[in-house]
Design a protein around this nucleic acid. Structure first.
Lengths: 245, 245
DNA sequence: TTTTACAACTTGTATAGTCATGTTGTCAAA
DNA sequence: TTTGACAACATGACTATACAAGTTGTAAAA
């Protein structure tokens, strides 16, 4: 459901190949059809095929080997990836978990300085939504979202209990584009610790993020507090050719 | 120093623009020269420019806005990013930290099952290098590297004390390409806890990774144990158009 | 048998052109 | 003044072509 923006040719092709990999129509260790064959298959030019394959390469689904072909990699995106920009609800569907969301608060508040730092003005207000995420009745994550106005004026209760991203993208037509993320391990206030039923050390994994629209407008500041024993972050990264020295 | 593979045109252009952004010749909030102007500047075609700009977009250095131009984003890659594939030594140079590396062990060992799982055969041996990283004399990270043979037969002491990546890439000519990474928070064995001078809860941030060459050969398994109070992971992520439902 | 050369595949890189579409300022019409 | 049309820019998407270079199997030459 999440993202069916198959606007253009290269995206549709990438999406199609990705699904075929997921459904093991193309299997790990095997090669994809060659670029020329894919040209015929999708009736497109080679450059378009290559741009589609570039997306799959970036995602870690394939590895291109010169002279040989595009090798399907063995992906295992199990567990709970905070990687990329993916919402809790999307993960919930994808992984088939039995998860619930409890909305604890929804009101205007001043954005805490730690979150605002470097992104928005200090002392600014925003719509503060506090949600407790549970899996099998056990509290796992506490999300503190601060939604900036503009572009967001209000959020219906259903959207808060469901997927904020789906509401933003589908109902509001916002074009969510990128985010910066920071992961640390910190002692948290007593209230949060008790909501998450933490040990007496009060340590939680804190994921602070700032999400931007395609026009670079910041619209969402989030602090997510995770139970350390249930936290797992999985990442795929490619070695970059650009250096900064 | 790390990576001067300015092989081709699009990479050189991307590298050049990246440096100009870093040195604030192109400043955050401003637009880059238009693609046509960059064509003239670098004497190349528009597609080549666009591929260079795609790299910068992926890195989070710029945001392209249709009809307007390429906006330089405000980057703040401070602190200690585990993001991407970057070695401790590279960070050390880049950030100008006063860091030291102490090699505690260098001998063949059996790869622990938790690391081997899903990547290499159980019971397999590899060159085990254990290193303690300190900043200003304070232990920060304990790295447990397992280097597979092939492709790696031995590692000189200087390389172990310095940068393994630099040795692999420059001396051995290996083409390091991608890695999978998993971050968790776990209680660690007493020995590791004391090396890192942890609190009595013995909690550490554990980063387990598997690094691959361009031909998909796995060559390095690593478990990094970080002091929780000094750990910070910073990430930039773009919202993907590909969905898996 | 072993080596060499080569053909036929693969991906990598760069070019030039075309049309679509979003943004902005200008200038004329209402 | 306000509105609207439009030109001149910008990026987005796609195509067609050319040549470079890595891989592999085969067949000829040593």
């Amino acid at each position: 459901m999440a993202r069916d923006n198959k606007k253009n040719k290269q995206d549709s092709i990438a999406q199609d190949i990705a699904l075929k990999i997921q459904h093991e129509q193309y299997q790990p260790g095997n090669l994809l059809p060659s670029e020329h064959q894919l040209c015929d298959l999708y009736g497109s030019s080679r450059e378009t095929i290559r741009k589609a394959l570039d997306q799959l390469t970036e995602l870690g689904l394939i590895q291109k080997i010169r002279g040989k072909g595009s090798l399907v990699l063995d992906i295992q995106r199990f567990s709970f990836p905070v990687s990329g920009i993916t919402s809790f609800q999307e993960l919930n569907k994808t992984l088939g978990m039995h998860a619930t969301t409890e909305v604890l608060q929804k009101k205007d508040d001043i954005v805490p300085d730690v979150l605002a730092k470097g992104h928005v003005d200090f002392g600014r207000t925003a719509l503060h939504i506090e949600r407790l995420r549970k899996i099998d009745q056990i509290p796992i994550v506490l999300d503190e979202d601060y939604l900036l106005n503009p572009p967001i004026t209000d959020v219906p209760d259903e959207a808060a209990a469901g997927s904020l991203y789906e509401y933003f993208e589908k109902s509001l037509g916002l074009d969510i584009s990128y985010a910066t993320k920071e992961i640390t391990v910190e002692p948290v206030p007593e209230r949060i610790a008790s909501l998450l039923a933490l040990n007496d050390n009060n340590l939680a994994v804190v994921v602070r993020s700032m999400t931007y629209l395609a026009d670079t407008t910041p619209f969402q500041l989030t602090a997510s507090y995770h139970r350390p024993d249930r936290f797992k972050f999985i990442d795929f990264a490619r070695r970059r050719k650009i250096s900064f020295n």
